[in-house]
Write a protein that binds this DNA or RNA. Sequence first.
DNA 1: GGGATGCCTTGACCCAGATCAACTGAGCCG
DNA 2: CGGCTCAGTTGATCTGGGTCAAGGCATCCC
Lengths: 247, 247
Amino acid sequence: MSHHDPKIADLNCGDCPIRHQAVCARCETDELHQLEAIKYYRSFQAGQPVIWSGDRMEFVASVVTGIATLTQTMEDGRRQMVGLLLPSDFIGRPGRANAAYDVTATTDLVMCCFRKKPFEALLASTPHIAQRLLEMTLDELDAAREWMLLLGRKTAREKIASLLAIIARRNASLKLAAVGGVRFDLPLTREEMADYLGLTLETVSRQISALKREGVIVLEGKRHVIVPNLDRLLEETGDDSDGGMLN
Amino acid sequence: MSHHDPKIADLNCGDCPIRHQAVCARCETDELHQLEAIKYYRSFQAGQPVIWSGDRMEFVASVVTGIATLTQTMEDGRRQMVGLLLPSDFIGRPGRANAAYDVTATTDLVMCCFRKKPFEALLASTPHIAQRLLEMTLDELDAAREWMLLLGRKTAREKIASLLAIIARRNASLKLAAVGGVRFDLPLTREEMADYLGLTLETVSRQISALKREGVIVLEGKRHVIVPNLDRLLEETGDDSDGGMLN
DNA sequence: GGGATGCCTTGACCCAGATCAACTGAGCCG
DNA sequence: CGGCTCAGTTGATCTGGGTCAAGGCATCCC
């Protein structure tokens, strides 16, 4: 990883790729300096655990690059992913000493960590940080509730289509819906998808094959997906067509 | 309802039953006066809709007494409850003009509403309100994630046991786990339970019958539940025995 | 009283998705 | 090169919970 980010360890907040999306988004330059004083970067390789549920957490953090997952595990091994953390997403909970979920890096990951105690102090003294964190938490709550509908009521096919649509949409917005369809790499293994969707990996595989067979998606290798017609995919998600204009 | 709350409409915040749990929990008396200036009460009868998803919302609110539900509906009628709102819980999202979910009163309900615009102004100027709202939102996010595990991975029996345990625990804490077991009334119909748990009402009914048959619970009528042995019920939830010491 | 309605229960049957198992293919290492 | 591991696919079979259908039992209203 060090070859693309040779200096990530001394990255200046002003040059940070998530400067305007993360908890620090609303900070003025002086507020940013205060955050800068308590931050440090940590990197993880794809597949590495970041924290185990129940571990003491000495920091909170923002994802800078890469993807992490939040999962819960039952004693008998059943697993449910409860969050997918993308760049700018926040990890940890102010006011809580121990992690509530397992956090794992699914791709190479760089996190911007803040020591917890001083961060909590800043939260109390810097409304811009508290406001932004509230806003982000409300967004996550909405996402969690949307996921509850998926887990409780959608069919396997709808679940897969919904997951692909979420990833596709995220990439479509960046890459301006190129002609010839949206294309992206799946950041998750079949098993991780299964844990996210409340399915088994076999069902995930079968449903992906079915969508491929019917031309809704095209696969290049196992991980690279091409969506020739995004509306077609969206129809398969079970959501109402006009993506519900909130806000 | 008016016979227990003859003067709910001019209740003073100092006498409010949720004074120390709701968004206002941390407010000093002067801050409370500011909230008091923009508040008004609204009552709903059991079964009444409070807001429909997509409706313009001119207020945010706290539940004072009674229970409300948050549900999402798909075009074809599949429904998933995504939140159960108990006294002190917060309704609405600052910064959002339209409701994202259907809100329904499942019992007679009294809400303490704040006009949205001035509430948002107070949020920005009164850190005690913002802090409390952040804390409450983080708690709801945790609850939503726990529910994701239930929806994605638990069996029908575990789902029912988990729901009963949540309600039982809430009552046990109040009524100091009386000898002879916890007892409570179910605040939800079988169908509402089904919508909460991602099941059908028939399955809910069958699993409740099974728990009754096996002596895990005792029913008095359709709605009154007695849990002779809370640990026994907890074993059926699938959660790890030592309710995971967070915080 | 009797019909209507709402909530709940129970039975019979079915099917979507889980489970169990075999197999492919790519990368990796000795 | 051959064997190993890891990720994914596919088939055969099973089953938990859904679906469809029939009743039960209060409550309410004419």
